[in-house]
């Protein structure tokens, strides 16, 4: 049954929608449609697009490999101080990404202690593609952790308890019960994380810099071109909009449509 929404609420709702949709339309009207194909296929734009997709995908995978287990520990663990830990995990969500980038730089940069450890192995992170991935993972992983942890809490431990009484060892329970039941939530969380990684700007530019081909992702390219060639910036922005719409349309995570 559909309940009618009070008419009074339609006004702010329409405003909210306008706030989301109108800027995109503004972007389209401002764009120079004649030069659009040429601008979005410029070598710089294609390089940035390819780099964005690669680093975004890598950051998403890294988020899943590290953030998935973290979500499980947060949801199922019985450690003291878990609440504090949960709050800390949310830090990248509330922290301005630039601050996150600076923090990463001072940890993993040449003078940071992490950087000095890496230097022993002749590794240097800042201003490399790897740094882009780390910056993106830093900002994107909390989305995955929150999504999965919420799903784990909602699902409860009952299926896992039953699996254990059927004689399944913890790893079997994880592999055959926990993960399959989590797949829908995992899908939507991965999309959210990927989308966030794709749009990452602040942490990337502070930690990884802005070098065409190695660290210049699409948002960084937009920023750079907006200083010089506004038409190009608008064109690349439209590219990002299309990419975002594709991600949402292809994955169409149920949790984004429904619950979340």
């Amino acid at each position: 049954m559909r309940r009618s929404v009070p008419v009074l609420l339609w006004v702010p709702a329409a405003l909210a929608l306008a706030l989301v949709v109108l800027p995109v339309i503004g972007l389209v009207t401002r764009s120079d449609l004649g030069r659009l194909p040429e601008l979005v296929t410029s070598p710089a734009a294609l390089d940035a697009l390819w780099l964005s997709v690669r680093t975004g995908a890598a950051a998403t995978v890294l988020s899943a490999l590290l953030g998935g287990p973290l979500a499980l520990v947060l949801a199922r663990g019985r450690l003291p101080g878990l609440r504090l830990l949960r709050a800390i995990v949310l830090l990248p969500l509330v922290l301005p990404p630039v601050v996150g980038g600076l923090a990463l730089l001072y940890l993993l940069g040449r003078n940071g202690f992490g950087g000095q450890v890496l230097a022993l192995f002749d590794l240097r992170l800042p201003f490399t593609t790897a740094a882009v991935i780390i910056a993106q993972t830093f900002v994107a992983m909390p989305f995955l952790v929150i999504g999965l942890e919420g799903a784990l809490r909602t699902a409860g431990e009952r299926y896992e308890a039953v699996a254990a009484t059927l004689g399944a060892a913890p790893w079997t329970v994880f592999r055959r019960v926990t993960v399959p039941l989590l797949l829908p939530a995992l899908g939507s969380s991965l999309v959210l994380a990927f989308a966030r990684a794709l749009g990452e700007f602040g942490a990337t530019i502070t930690f990884a810099g802005n070098f065409e081909g190695t660290t210049q992702t699409l948002p960084l390219l937009v920023y750079e071109q907006s200083q010089a060639d506004v038409d190009a910036a608008v064109a690349v922005s439209l590219l990002l909009v299309v990419l975002a719409i594709v991600v949402i349309a292809v994955a169409r995570p149920r949790s984004i449509e429904g619950r979340l």
Binding site: R158, T165, G167, V177
Partner: peptide
Amino acid sequence: VPSHLRGVGLLAQDPLLFPHM
């Protein structure tokens, strides 16, 4: 002894069949 090594089965009020199998 952890649950999976006890040899104690449980039939609960809800069947709790694994929905993905």
